[in-house]
Simulated scan of single mutants.
Amino acid sequence: MKKTSIFISLFILVAFFSGFSEDKHISNNITNFTASISYVPTEKESIAYNFQAPFVGNSFNGFREAIAFKESQGKYHVTNSFGYLGKYQFGKSTLERFKIYDTQEFLETPELQEDAFVALCSVNKWILRKDIKRSVGKTINGIEITESGILAAAHLSGAGNVKKYLRSNGSTKFKDAYGSSIQHYIKKFSGYDTSFIEANQKATI
């Protein structure tokens, strides 16, 4: 009887400590999809892996996850009714700008989608660099202009349309096929820290 009790006690202890070891292993194996970004976990990941770190908030990671949720609810494999692809809903012509021609591979490769988003932000920041300098801090149609709002709007409508909107002081407007406007994106995605993004006309993946 004593031997049986000792055996059961040892078994419970081993199982208990094994559980801690497994949790530690999981928390040390989080994938960073974009090598060029210092990884900051999302709120969901923080809960799942028990991160002892602040939520993304207004960081660049918070910015991209907010856009991704708006575009596709954060799903990598989505193609919408107009043929826009992936987590950030890229058009085929934009992907070709970064020499991405295999759309199926793109949908199946999260790392590629994350890198494409960063590269597009870099290109848009370069195209809009003068407008960012002139417009950030101003108010157009009652909305404060921020760099992150400008970059989000450029993702929606293209940098050229954002340039027209800013230079016309908000009188030249644009809406996509689903009714989302430049003005809405500038407001919704204001105040994020996008200083990480470098303006680069020739950004590649």
Rank of each mutant, 00 (worst) to 15 (best):
G149R: 04
F90A: 07
H155D: 02
K92H: 14
K130W: 06
E147W: 01
H155I: 00
I143A: 03
Y101W: 10
A154S: 12
A159K: 07
T94Q: 01
R134E: 11
A119E: 04
V136F: 03
L120R: 11
N141R: 09
T139K: 13
E111I: 08
A119L: 05
F117P: 08
A153R: 00
N161G: 09
L95H: 04
S157E: 08
L156M: 06
Q104V: 15
D115L: 14
D131L: 07
D115F: 12
E96I: 11
A116G: 06
P110S: 10
D131N: 14
K125E: 04
S122F: 01
A119N: 05
S148C: 05
I127P: 00
A153S: 08
G160M: 14
I132R: 00
K130G: 07
D131Y: 01
T139P: 08
D131H: 08
Y101H: 11
S148A: 04
N161L: 08
N141V: 01
L120I: 11
K99V: 10
I100R: 03
E147K: 05
G137N: 07
V123I: 13
T139E: 07
L151W: 00
L128W: 06
I143E: 10
E111V: 08
G158D: 09
V136C: 12
G91P: 04
E114P: 08
E96K: 14
F117M: 12
V118C: 10
V136D: 08
G160E: 10
S148P: 02
F98I: 10
F90N: 08
I132K: 07
S122D: 03
Q113H: 10
L112G: 03
D131G: 08
S157N: 01
K99Y: 14
N124Y: 15
E111M: 10
G91W: 06
I150S: 05
A116F: 03
E114T: 09
E108F: 09
K130L: 08
G160T: 05
G160P: 05
I100P: 01
V162M: 06
V118I: 14
E111N: 14
F117C: 09
